[in-house]
């Protein structure tokens, strides 16, 4: 499948990565090449095959539903680019 610049723009938006307009055509052609490679998968007969969910068959372990961790506000915020008064600070989200 060939990817046009509009699709490339939409994917960049969905991925929350800023791509300048003049970079979109090159990006679209890279996507097209990669998707062309991926499309070999259409040759495989997958009728009746279940999609793999777990590579090693195992049941998730269960544990008591109790608090086992927490109270680490300082550590959690230690690497934040902007933390104030015990919170992560971000640009204004709502008017």
């Amino acid at each position: 499948m060939s990817i046009d610049t509009e699709t490339a723009r939409r994917v960049a938006k969905l991925a929350r990565i800023k791509v300048e307009d003049d970079a979109l055509p090159a990006l679209a052609s890279e996507f097209s090449a990669i998707l062309g490679f991926i499309e070999q998968l259409n040759e495989v007969d997958v009728d009746g095959v279940e999609p793999m969910t777990s590579v090693t068959p195992q049941r998730l372990k269960r544990r008591e539903d109790v608090v086992t961790d927490g109270d680490q506000q300082v550590k959690v915020l230690a690497n934040a680019p902007d933390a104030r008064e015990g919170f992560f600070a971000v640009p204004k989200v709502v008017e």
Partner: peptide, 29 residues
């Protein structure tokens, strides 16, 4: 960036079955 965007594309509405689910079936094989 390229891989994040390819991943976003193959998971996006309308392509999830054609790409992602098909790949998971091939993985099972």
């Amino acid at each position: 960036q390229r891989r994040v965007m390819v991943g976003t594309y193959v998971l996006s509405a309308g392509f999830y079955d054609a790409y992602y689910n098909r790949a998971r079936k091939v993985r099972a094989l």
